[in-house]
Amino acid sequence: MAEKEMTGSKDGEKHTGYTGAKFGMWFFLMTELIFFGGLFLLYSVYRSTYAADFHIAALDENIVIGSVNTVILITSSFTMALSISAVRKGDNRLSAWLQAGTIAMGCVFLVNKYFEWGDKIGRGIYPNSTLMMQKKKGEMLFYSLYYVMTGIHALHVIIGIGVIGAMLLLTRSGAINSGSFVKLENTGLYWHFVDMVWIYLFPLFYLVT
């Protein structure tokens, strides 16, 4: 590893180390983990304090949309992982298609989220609405956490779609290839992380009532 990665680390040259790039991504993901961890901590403390209210509020969640979105996101993670193996085996064409599929599934996830939020907002359930202000404190907290946590998660999905889109162009142009694929790998790490956050959001908001 040393020889090859040391080249390019001189002043004024581009840093191209594989290990460095990957660790950089992982360190970023660890800060993301702590960031989401704080929100999960908030959720669990309020849940234990207002157990009954959380129970009532969670009954309102649509398990079908939640489950469908879980399957979509897991499948998109699967195609993302496949796209990296494809590039490494030299099949850029297949990889590009798999990345396009990942983007498409990310978009479907967001469309479902749009309908889900739209339905709630249509029924007057949104922060500071008249209906919300009449609800119990725990229910208000549940919906607030629901909007903040799924909202920030959705923002991550949007960013992920953008980055995969850029990778798709690089894969098609050949800038990402079987010899240089760390950008795609790091994008994959990000996408899988976003999937992992959803793996926890799904049971906490939709299932555990």
């Binding site: 993670s77 699967f78 992982a81 994959g188 899988h192 999937d195 992992m196 793996i199 926890y200 049971p203």
Partner: peptide
Amino acid sequence: CLVIASIKALLVLMFFM
């Protein structure tokens, strides 16, 4: 549910990631 979620997260972490 949390145990199942953690098994899923572990699979993603170990293999996909």
